[in-house]
Design a protein around this nucleic acid. Structure first.
Lengths: 336, 336
DNA sequence: TTGAAAGCGCTAACAG
DNA sequence: CTGTTAGCGCTTTCAA
């Protein structure tokens, strides 16, 4: 299309420089070129540019799933920064499968993206595919579900403290037999939350009962079954901490079916960003993660490293704290 | 990297043909090349290929927002097909602003994407930017929030019938003064739903009262105020149809504050795909849209047209029906 | 079945 | 400040 731009009796390179906003071009010609470009509705071909410059102005966001308030809010945060910086966002879903995650990342070897934001799948037990990526010079920033051993920047929330806070809150509300619901034994995020829970219990001289560590699945009905089983045990828990948003519904439904009163017979707290938490029956006490902020921060860190050349990301964990929002499911009282 | 591939004493073109899986290459050399490629972890540069072939194997998904169950489930559907077809998915958010929508689409003039899936913003009143796109040979498929006048394929749900069904259900439950909550007067989807509501009311000899058409905003607190105002009118409605998922919370909270019993004093039905609908207080009667299916279908239609060359998409509306799921908020009874 | 050569649209030296 | 030239890595005739 530069050919057309030579309506103006200019060389291709001059026109090109206009579009890269080079300082070595006079205002006058810049205006002329830009004017004609607008008139002709011309936009430079990004792929030609990518090919030449060896950078794509595109990042990838790799997620386990998107139907989760945390991830959708995080996408929002990421997008807000990407837009600001003129980057494009490719989205990929692993559906919690390490194999897919590997396949997706391996495609990035091609230079399709300049950087990657990733929240790993709960199947992901090794980080070779990620290290591979970084060795090829493609920076990776973890957020939320991180690999703690991998040498790059990790954006997390204070999972351990949050677990502790949640458990402490339940203890304060009189719970003595607390169960912890999770979907993964391997994710650091899950382990950290559990560690916090255990710490709070131990501090209170009521060590965590390992039978109360309940592993859930991807399947809603299966989860309902598992939780009903839990609630039908003779030593049934009097408090539940759901470490994953989507387990909330299963807990509520199980209680409904079994006619177990929340919070009377069972207190429930959930790691959740659902906007419906305040209008559940009863309203749900949550640990609310700073999803938007974490997405935003992850993107900022990534773009920052993309600005400079050859700067490997610091192997550090940046923590954005979550908040405990107390509602009726643990207190019986509506604290707004 | 083809240079490296000439470890094998082959020409670049031969190697290239291997990667396009050309039939004019012997099995033998194919294997050899593929083997070395895997060993060297080589992946062809997609941008060079895009430049040459003038197609990017990439589509754009343009959405008003992502923090909405419908859109996140739709993304899921889109991704499932994209993955299957080997396409990549760029995501863009308009945040309900037509200006952003235009800016986003205008970038696509560059050939960045081969096609576009779009759900328009509620500000979008004209379709010039979209027509422009199509005239440049980039196919556009609408889903959910469509432009009815624009000559391309539209994937919708049966909005009118759903509105009618919702209103009829409220009438059946004894409502005589039904309000309709919306965030847009211009979106066809909103108009159609309202038309269905009116039709049901008219059929029942109780024409819709225009004062009961309530325009809400992007702002949660503002919405709460608006709805409280509605519920404090002397002729306060005895039934509410929320045409947007996120208005549900405002309705519930308003009722809580004003101590209006649902469904006793007010019956509520919502167009919503929230997974928490069954565990709200009370559980929420919904019109549930086939989000995943619609996303999937939109993607299928788009990829179909991308396969052939120079086939403009049929200007037709494909309807995937929604379902009425009756729960306590309109009946007082829990029907599961 | 394979190879040589041209060029997709753009940018980056380097000259002028 | 502007122009010339040489590719970025791939695909695609066309010829061997």
């Amino acid at each position: 299309m530069k050919l057309l731009a030579k309506e103006l009796q200019l060389s291709v390179s001059t026109v090109s420089k206009v579009f890269t906003d080079s300082h070595e071009i006079s205002e006058q010609t810049k205006q002329k070129v830009l004017a004609l470009a607008k008139k002709l509705n011309y936009v430079p071909n990004p792929y030609a540019s990518s090919l030449r410059k060896r950078k794509s102005k595109t990042i990838a966001v790799v997620l386990p799933e998107v139907a989760d308030s945390f991830f959708s809010m995080a996408i929002n945060g990421i997008e807000s920064i990407a837009r600001e910086k003129g980057y494009h966002v490719l989205i990929y879903l692993t559906h919690e499968q390490m194999e897919r995650e590997q396949a997706i990342l391996s495609d990035f070897q091609s230079g399709r993206v300049d950087g990657v934001l990733i929240s790993i799948s709960n199947e992901t037990t090794n980080d070779e595919h990620i290290i591979d990526m970084m060795q090829r010079g493609i920076p990776v920033v973890f957020f939320d579900r991180v690999c703690e051993e991998t040498a790059t920047t990790r954006i997390t929330t204070n999972d351990r403290e949050s677990g502790q806070l949640a458990a402490q809150h339940l203890i304060d509300q009189g719970c003595r037999n607390i169960a912890y619901l999770t979907i993964s034994g391997s994710l650091s995020i899950s382990r950290n939350r559990l560690a916090g829970v255990k710490q709070a219990l131990t501090a209170h001289r009521t060590p965590f009962n390992e039978r109360n560590l309940v592993m859930c699945t991807d399947n809603e009905e299966e989860n309902l079954r598992i939780i009903k089983e839990l609630l039908q045990r003779k030593d049934r828990p009097d408090g539940i901490i759901a470490s994953v948003e989507k387990l909330t519904a299963a807990v509520y439904l199980a209680c409904k079916e079994l006619k177990i009163a929340i919070p009377g017979k069972l207190k429930v707290i959930s790691f959740s960003n659902q906007t419906t938490a305040p209008i559940l029956n009863p309203s749900l006490t949550t640990i609310t993660q700073p999803a938007f902020a974490m997405g935003k921060l992850a993107a900022e860190v990534l773009f920052n490293s993309l600005k400079k050349t050859n700067v490997t990301l610091k192997a550090e964990t940046v923590v954005v704290p979550s908040a405990l929002v107390v509602r009726e499911s643990t207190t019986g009282r509506d604290l707004g």
